[in-house]
Design a protein around this nucleic acid. Sequence first.
DNA 1: GGCACCCGAGATCGAAACGGTATTGGACGC
DNA 2: GCGTCCAATACCGTTTCGATCTCGGGTGCC
Lengths: 101, 101
Amino acid sequence: MSLAQIRYFVAVAEEGHVGRAAERLHVAQPPVSRQIRALEDEIGTPLFARTPRGMTLLPPGEVFLDHARAILEAVERAGDAARAFAAGPCVRPARRSSAAG
Amino acid sequence: MSLAQIRYFVAVAEEGHVGRAAERLHVAQPPVSRQIRALEDEIGTPLFARTPRGMTLLPPGEVFLDHARAILEAVERAGDAARAFAAGPCVRPARRSSAAG
DNA sequence: GGCACCCGAGATCGAAACGGTATTGGACGC
DNA sequence: GCGTCCAATACCGTTTCGATCTCGGGTGCC
C-alpha cells in the first residue's frame, strides 16, 4: 500500500472511470488499472465492480474511500504543520519585525 | 513523500539512532539515512538535529511525528475497515446458506 | 596527542517497482 | 457482424530503492 495507490483509488472512485482518473492524475490508464488491482489484492477484497460503463464503488470501496481521503488530507497537514512550525510555532523571534504577521 | 519515509521517520524518531531504526525496520542504515534526508528536503525543513550520539528530534520533527503516527494508524485502519466490511458490515446477506452464523 | 570506536553520510551497483506504448478481450449499439 | 468504449494484459525503458563498501566527524581512552 502506497500513497500513490490511495491517490489513484480516490481518483477512480470519484470519476467512476479508470481512463478519466488517469487523465486527472496525468498518467496513462494501465498504471492506474494496475495499482487499483494491487490495492484490492493487498486489502484482500474487491473495491470496485467492473461494469461495461466503468467502475462502480462496492461497499468496502466506499468505506475505504472515506479513510483514503482522510489519509491524503493527513499527509498534507503533516508537511504543512512541520513547515509552519519551522517558521515559528506561535511567536516569532521578532528580528526587527514590527508586525506579528 | 511516501509511507515508507513516514515509517522510517517514526522509527528514527523513536530510536534516536539511524542504525537502530534500520535494525528495527530490517533494512540497512544508508537507505534510512537517505530517506530521512529526502523527507526533510521535501518538507523543506530539518526534522532532526545530527549529534555525535545520534539523532535528536527538532521542534518541527516533533510536530511531524505526531502527524506521522496518525497517518500510519489511519492506513492500518483503512485496510482493516474495508476488510471488515467485505466480510459483512453488521448483517450477512445470508446467501442461501444453511447456518446463519 | 594519537588511536580506536561510535555515529551518520556519500559513492556505486544490482534488483525491484513504476509508468508508457501497443495490444487483447468483453459488452453494447447499429 | 462490425465499430466503439471500457478495463486488463504483455512487454520494454526508465527510475527508484536497497545493499555493500567506504569516508568524514566527534568522543573517550590511554
